[in-house]
């Protein structure tokens, strides 16, 4: 595996995770539990889709096969997507939406904090912008986890359920494969051991404040999203997201 190939794959992972979570959050338009939360969810979605575009544009330049950012988003099938399994999980109730966001935000924040110092200037530049947004996202989702966990019996039960169900997808965030290792060695990606430790520390700290319990670090985990092996949900997301540009490939505005 060349470094160039690893870098392309790594960029697609960053891009696809941000894009798919952005698409998931966009589903809340018109049906979030409160107007403020609809604004918040869609603004987070906007940040993520904007970041995704920056990653895709760089990936497209490196791939250099004639595809642009739009084509990478709209014309790849599920097995070509490299997003984390966590972000393709459905919104369910708002506790699920928040728990998913929180687990992702913690990973995103610690990853971007490292990418800011990447040996690749382009990555460092995109990360420097994104980390400000991700920091704000983490502040918001942490607040919600605390509010729900340390709230009413009902809110506590729901967010605890969400933590329990989604925990099985969190191992992938901090389990490094050969591409993550190659990016670390190239002075780009985070130290996998450090990232794992940071992620667990932050999650536990907030969970404790929220009176929630987290799963075991060595619990059985679903892996595979980063290699293109997805849960049943991704195909449905792509069907909605890609229908228009696939049906009307000549349309330039919609």
């Amino acid at each position: 595996m060349s470094d160039q190939h690893a870098l392309q794959e790594y960029l697609l992972r960053l891009a696809d995770s941000a894009m798919i979570l952005g698409q998931r959050l966009s589903e809340l338009v018109g049906k979030a539990p409160a107007l403020e939360e609809e604004l918040a969810s869609t603004n987070v979605a906007l940040d993520l889709i904007g970041q995704a575009r920056n990653w895709y544009e760089y990936a497209a330049e490196l791939l250099d096969d004639g595809r642009d950012a739009d084509q990478l988003v709209f014309l790849r099938d599920a097995h070509e997507y490299r997003n984390l399994l966590l972000v393709e999980q459905p919104n369910e109730d708002y506790a699920f939406t928040i728990a998913r966001q929180f687990f992702y935000d913690v990973w995103h924040y610690h990853t971007l904090t490292r990418l800011v110092d990447a040996s690749d200037d382009r990555i460092a530049g995109i990360a420097a912008k994104a980390v400000k947004e991700a920091t704000y996202h983490l502040r918001r989702s942490s607040e919600w986890v605390r509010r729900m966990g340390d709230g009413t019996d009902e809110s506590h039960r729901r967010i605890q359920d969400a933590f329990d169900v989604l925990w099985r997808f969190t191992g992938e965030l901090v389990t490094a494969d050969d591409i993550d290792q190659a990016m670390f060695k190239a002075g780009i990606g985070p130290d996998p051991e450090q990232l794992k430790q940071d992620w667990h520390n932050t999650v536990r700290e907030v969970a404790t404040q929220a009176t929630l319990t987290t799963g075991a670090e060595d619990a059985w985990m679903y892996l595979g999203g980063k290699r293109g092996e997805h849960t049943e949900h991704l195909g449905h997301i792509l069907a909605v997201m890609q229908f228009l540009p696939r049906a009307y490939p000549d349309a330039t505005t919609w």
Binding site: L39, A40, L46, T135
Partner: peptide, 28 residues
């Protein structure tokens, strides 16, 4: 970014007795 709530003065009456309703408003 992470932190302690800033004191935000009301642009109309200058009061610092304000509260945050939502982390996000009409634009990002």
């Amino acid at each position: 970014l992470l932190g302690a709530d800033e004191i935000v003065a009301c642009p109309r009456c200058n009061s610092e007795h304000t509260e945050r309703l939502s982390e996000f408003g009409s634009t990002a």
